[in-house]
Simulated assay, not measured.
Amino acid sequence: MKVERLISIMIILLDKERISAQKLADIFEVSLRTIYRDIEAINRIGIPVRSTSGVGGGFEIMPNYKIDSKVFSDVDLSTILMALSSLSTMIRGDELIHTLTKIKSLIPADKAKEIELRTNQFCLDLTSWTGNRERQSYLEMIKIALQEKKLLSFEYAGRYGDKTERTVESYQLILKSNHWYLQGYCLKRNDFRLFRLSRISNLQIQMRFFIPREYQKPQLDFTDILKTMQTKINIRIHKSVMDRVLDHCTYEYFSPDGEEHYIVDFPFIENDYYYNILFSFGDKCECLGPLHIRAEMKRRIHDIVAIYES
């Protein structure tokens, strides 16, 4: 996001005496043109950044300049602190601690309690209740690989449990729908792949470096695609699973059916994933229609029963 990048550039300029446009472009994986536009934007908000040409040239904040506390509003500072604090629950390191310290140093003394109150009004804890014990260490390793442009090797479990050995150029760490993913170029498949961390084992950082290649970031928003694929089915649920059903659709699709049940217009795609969602509600959910979905549910239930009868 541009705002986050501008803040990061300002922090870098405060920390360093001088840095080249190319170095900034490499850090944020954007074009030189984008960096020049960002520097112009920083100048417009009142922070005087000057450029010097030639060997050793680059951008720097004018000597003796200190950021006026008015550059960031109370809401700006509390939002930045909230975002950084939530990230620090998952990815720890000196960089985040230093950044948090610098941001806090911008808070005027007379505003400290008010901004602390605003910050504490929201809690974004990205850690899981139980989760994979390896995840934290894996996140740290991927973070190092991203910063140092080193190859990662690991075993990857496919959809049906088959494992393959992979060597990957790491490009991006993604948190999507409570799951962490690594976006990288797989040397085995000769293409970019999205790897789910929960399927990764024996993760190792290789000593080999790689030269970053151009790539398109993965598509993470499938809202429009899902709308064309999904249909509505009718399910009858007990109120005890209502909160879990609400993870998949909104309350406007619920209609009361007596005192303890609801009829729900449930978004559905005819594949294993969605059938398993219905089964996860156990005997607190009944598919009412369409009839062929109900018949398929019945067939799958018979298959499960057959396993236990044998």
Rank of each mutant, 00 (worst) to 15 (best):
E165H: 08
D224P: 03
I233T: 14
D257E: 12
E252Y: 09
A157M: 09
D265C: 03
C186G: 02
I174W: 00
S153H: 08
K217M: 08
E252M: 10
L146V: 12
L146Y: 11
L151S: 02
L203P: 08
S198H: 09
N190R: 15
F192Y: 12
M207F: 01
G161T: 12
D257P: 00
L175D: 06
L152T: 04
I205N: 08
I174V: 12
L220I: 13
Y215E: 06
K163S: 15
L197W: 08
V264L: 07
F222H: 02
D247P: 01
D257C: 06
Y251G: 01
F209E: 15
H261E: 11
L220H: 08
D257V: 10
I144Q: 12
N178L: 07
D221L: 01
Q204E: 11
L220M: 14
F268M: 06
L197F: 12
I263V: 13
L220Q: 11
V264A: 07
S170Y: 00
W180S: 09
E259I: 10
P218I: 07
L173S: 06
N234V: 03
R236S: 13
M207D: 06
L226P: 01
T167F: 00
I237L: 02
C249S: 04
M242A: 08
I174Y: 01
N190T: 13
Q219T: 11
Q206P: 04
S201E: 11
R199A: 13
N234K: 09
Q230C: 06
N190W: 02
C186T: 07
E155A: 14
L187K: 13
V264C: 06
Q183G: 03
F192R: 04
Y215F: 10
D221S: 10
